[in-house]
Design a protein around this nucleic acid. Structure first.
Lengths: 221, 221
DNA sequence: AATAAAATTTAGACAAATCTAAAATTAAAA
DNA sequence: TTTTAATTTTAGATTTGTCTAAATTTTATT
């Protein structure tokens, strides 16, 4: 199945919204796509026609299996191209979104799978969001904030929630990057700050505010 | 300036046709684009409106400077992506055209220039067609058939005219690829076959039929 | 529960790109 | 040089995706 760029955009946004909301509303989708509620309604009819989602008028909507599959393929493409742009073409992590918005609509499945191989099957994009595999499966482990990690459990940085320049600068200073191994050695209940071992360095203090923005996954063996 | 995919396709095809024809005709363009003459006329009006070509009704048309510039940028993108697909993603030379037809419409100029750098500023695409540089300039040397090359002049393979599988297989056997250095050591007027030194190997015989399909350029120092 | 507000959908319009069928123009043949 | 044939253009329709304004339905408030 091949869908228009506009349909792919709708599917993708619905997918993201329904993770937060369950049932998605017309207004929410219109806001996410920077379009008008009336336009969303028009598109919903077409997507329902093509059996990509459940939708009853005035009642909200959510993707069915077909729709979810299509959405995930678009997300896969988007994230792989972002990874390519940053890792191979040296773009900054904050410059790639718009370009990837265009590239995600290139249709060849073969292309995407070869790109995946060329990049070494990356698990997350440059923002730390997981890249689904060729079958549409997301790596099952989920990200959690560093704040919620048990003491002495080895974890790996898999994403940064609030990507401000200041935040990035601070992380840079502490040598914390995507993929960096961390261990929480101590928690201070007074201000919820943490003492964290970063790679093999001596432990340093990390504020609660920063910690909750560092997303990690359990270390795979 | 940014143009729709359809407009870019029209500009690109006109560019190619006017190299062969000078003035381009409505029917010729319709055939090249697999569309209808009436549709071409419609588009011509729009492109003239945007001052991308000279056009008088019933009289034919050709790109002006603006139009040529736009067309060349599309061609540049197409050929760079083809090169990427073959050299980095291991596609066969005969599998990449359709995909590149889609990728050539990605708009970011920055992307194209970085891709160019990433690929090492290749001079020709996998079919041997020249890749214009960032300013839209084509490398000036032109390709000639191996048959027409003077004795003992070092040349480099820059393209293959008739890309049949059989032809490619034969070239593979002789270790002749894009970029291979060749020297014609002897010509046999009887059958117009050549004795050719390939890289540093001992010379081998190449038939006239094959030779005229091997496109080369004078070796740059 | 009645009414006001918010959300959603419909109706009708528009732009882009295409098409078919008919008309206009140019080129070729008798 | 007429007449015929081929090419090109126009006129009007269609599809996709969008919009505004008005109507409908749901939700929230008094």
């Amino acid at each position: 199945m091949k869908y228009s760029a506009s349909k792919e955009n709708h599917l993708k946004s619905i997918f993201h919204l329904q993770h937060e909301q369950g049932l998605v509303t017309t207004n929410a989708l219109a806001a996410a796509l920077q379009t008008r509620p009336a336009s969303v309604t028009d598109m919903l009819k077409k997507l329902k026609e093509q059996k990509l989602l459940h939708y009853e008028r005035y009642k909200g909507f959510r993707l069915n299996n077909e729709g979810r599959k299509a959405a995930v393929q678009v997300i896969r493409k988007h994230r792989l191209w972002e990874y390519f742009l940053v890792k191979k073409l040296q773009f900054g992590w904050d410059e790639v979104h718009e370009i990837a918005e265009e590239m995600e609509h290139i249709s060849s499945k073969e292309l995407v799978d070869r790109l995946d191989a060329f990049l070494g099957y990356p698990a997350t994009d440059p923002h730390g969001d997981p890249i689904p595999d060729s079958m549409g499966r997301f790596s099952q482990q989920k990200q959690l904030g560093l704040s919620g990690v048990p003491l002495n459990k080895p974890v790996r940085v898999s994403g940064i929630a609030q990507q401000t320049t200041e935040m990035l600068e601070l992380l840079q200073y502490h040598h914390i990057h995507l993929g960096t191994r961390l261990e929480v050695k101590k928690k201070f209940p007074f201000d919820d700050s943490l003492e964290v071992k970063i790679g093999n360095r001596p432990p340093v203090a990390i504020s609660a505010q920063v910690a909750k923005n560092i997303l990690v996954k359990e270390e795979e063996k």
